[in-house]
Amino acid sequence: MAEAWLDLMQILASTLRLSAPLIFCAMAGLFSERAGVVDIGLEGKLLMGAFAAAAAASATGSPWLGLFAAIAAGMALALVHAFACVTHRGDQIVSGVAINILASGLTVVLGIAMFSQGGQTPPLSRPERFGDITLPFTETFADIPYFGPFYAELLSGQNLLVYLAILAVPITGFVLFSTTFGLRLRAVGEAPEAVDSAGYSVAWLRYRAVLIAGLLCGIGGAYLSIAHGGGFVREMSAGRGYIALAALIFGKWKPVPTLFACLLFGVLESTASRLSGVDLPVIGEIPVEVILVAPYVLTVILLAGFFGRAIPPRALSIPYVKER
C-alpha cells in the first residue's frame, strides 16, 4: 500500500514537472486570447525562449540571466505578433504560424552559428540551471506515512519554475478578474467597440496582453532548457505550445479549468513514460507508439466537442477597425 502511494506521488510529481511548460503557455494564451488575439504562436515563443535561456545561461553561467533572456526573446516575438495583428490588423493565424516557422528555423541557425553543435547548446551543468529546491522539514516528515512521501516527492524537490508555474494560475486569475486592467482586457476581447467608446485604447490593451503572453511563454521556454532540461535541443518544445492551446480551449478560457486541462495532458505524458515496456494484466504490453500518441488523440477527442462547447471570446481573431 505504502509502495503504491509512493508510486502515485512520483507519478503526480512527474505530472507536475511535465505540465509546467503547458501551464505557462496556456496562461500566456489566456491573456492573449481573452484580449481577442489568437495566439497559435505559443509554440514558437516557447521554443525561442528555450533557446535564448540556454544560450544565455551557457554564455554567462547564470540561470537568472538565462531566464531574463528567455523573457526578452518571448516578448520580442510577441511584439512582432502584436505589430502584425494589432497595428496592421493582419491575420492572427498567419502571423502566429509565421512566428512558429521563424522560431523553428532561427533557433537552429543561431545555435549552429554560436555553438557549432548541430543546433544544440552545450549541456548545462548544475550552477547554470535552476536546481531542485528541497523544502525544510523533508527529513522530519519522512517517517510520517502518506504525508511523508507526499511532502518529499510532490511538494518538495521541484525546481523554482515549477512553483512559479503553479503560482502563475492564481496570479492570472487575479489580474484578469480582480483588477480594472483585467476587466478592460477581457472587454477588449468581447466588445472592443465598447472599450473604445469608453475612451480607452483598444490597441494598447491588446499590445499589453500579447506582451504578457510573450513573457509567460519565455518563462516556459526557460523551464524547458535550463530547469527541467539541461540545454537546448532543436525542436525541444515538441508541440507543447499547441497542446497548451488545446488545454486553453478545453479549459474554456478560464484559469483553473485550464490548469486542470494542462495537468490532464501532463498525467497522460507521465503515465505514458511509466507504462512503456510494462506488462499489464489482461491488456499485456502496450506498444510505446500507442502511449506516445495518447495525448494527441485525447486532444482531438476533447476538441471535437465531446465535453460541451466552449464559447470563445466574441472578438477573438477579429482585428479592431473603427467603423465607417
Binding site: 480594472t180 476587466l183 478592460r184 477581457r186 472587454a187 468581447e190 466588445a191 467597440e193 465598447a194 472599450v195 473604445d196 467608446s197 469608453a198 480607452y200 466574441r314
Partner: peptide
Amino acid sequence: MLVPNFTVLENLQL
C-alpha cells in the same frame, strides 16, 4: 457599446 456577457456594473466599471 456594451459587453454583452458582462454585468451592468462591470460595463460601467469599464
